[in-house]
Design a protein around this nucleic acid. Structure first.
Lengths: 193, 193
DNA sequence: CCGGTAGGTTACTCCCGGTAAGATGGCGGT
DNA sequence: ACCGCCATCTTACCGGGAGTAACCTACCGG
């Protein structure tokens, strides 16, 4: 079996099995068995268990980013861009449920490597914000992106706990805060037109 | 050594050493050595490595919540409450740097147990929001609280990566989004009075 | 027909989470 | 003063899983 194909195959298995049973609960032996090979094969391709986890997270997050980017590109206003991107974010996680568990099993991983992967998402978000609010300092844009990404991730985990919260509701709650702002809501109405 | 005192001593050591070197990198033997006892002692008090981690996280988060609650109580307006609480959140993490690493090493832990601890923070935040925007459905309040807590945690991790971001700046970026809202900022000004 | 190499397997080592069984020591009762 | 009891701690061990060394095999170019 050629190298690239085998690696795709292994990452597929890793995403599935880490997502289902949790990183810490899964042995490399188990992943290997699922692929139909033996342990050392995994090590020649990914170096360590953590390396494999990283590859699996990178794959899943890249799919997620793709979905969000498509939704954002299809929007015709800043508000629609934020709302649509967020909504598709939650819907993607509904479709590919196990994948999200991966992002929660971030533990044990060298923080720097993980943050590097996450940076794709925040950089993308910051770029969208830059287009909407030109002239803002880069640090502020990044900070805003962190707020949005952090809020979405936390809402996603919350939805994992309480299944009764729909993707639409989660999106609405995010928009309340990040788009309208508490100042507007607190005065008893939606954001002023 | 009496039971309660020993437990405090062990949790102290666990917070320090897990925070410094990361949960996965630390053996129970190492924690025991730091306390000056042997491994089985830890197991009689906390049952498992994960149990000890949980106790350490609970301790650190409870301190954090206390700091935030004091700051919020001292504020004289909704905006000051949010700003002050957030600022003290970041300042606490600056003072007790290693503690925050704990929250990042959430991995490997049974999600439900961890979310239970985190719920203290979101419940507190939701209660503050309820007082400010009366008549809001409970689910929406909780959602808003998730947004704020998620944003703060993400900003905190970001600050861990990029030391040049001050607590004041992080607070400002959060207020931009959550208080003013992008709608207001996008139209080129601060939130309307 | 043959050597070399990519890709794979068997068979280990070592570390660490977790535990069983025994030592120590203070304290109340007689 | 002595004895037994309970809490507390230690030594010594088990099992499993991450990671590796050494060997095997089948394909491909000459």
């Amino acid at each position: 079996m050629p190298r690239a194909e085998r690696e795709r195959q292994i990452v597929d298995a890793a995403v599935a099995v880490f997502g289902e049973r949790g990183y810490a609960e899964v042995s490399m032996e188990a992943v290997a068995e699922r692929v139909g090979v033996t342990k050392p094969v995994l090590y020649t391709h990914f170096g360590s268990k953590e390396g494999l986890l990283l590859a699996a997270i990178a794959r899943a997050r890249s799919e997620l980013l793709d979905v969000v980017a498509r939704a954002a590109a299809a929007a015709d206003s800043p508000e629609a861009m934020l709302r649509g991107g967020t909504l598709e974010f939650f819907r993607y996680l509904d479709r590919r449920a196990p994948a999200w568990q991966l992002f929660c099993s971030e533990a044990g991983v060298t923080d720097t490597a993980l943050e590097e992967i996450r940076a794709q998402q925040t950089d993308f978000t910051a770029a969208l914000l830059a287009a909407q609010v030109p002239g803002t300092e880069p640090a502020r844009l990044t900070g805003w992106a962190q707020v949005i990404v952090g809020a979405c991730e936390r809402l996603a985990v919350w939805r994992g706990q309480d299944e009764s919260v729909t993707a639409e509701q989660a999106t609405e709650y995010l928009m309340d805060m990040v788009w309208s702002g508490l100042a507007g809501l607190g005065r008893g109405g939606a954001a002023p037109a």
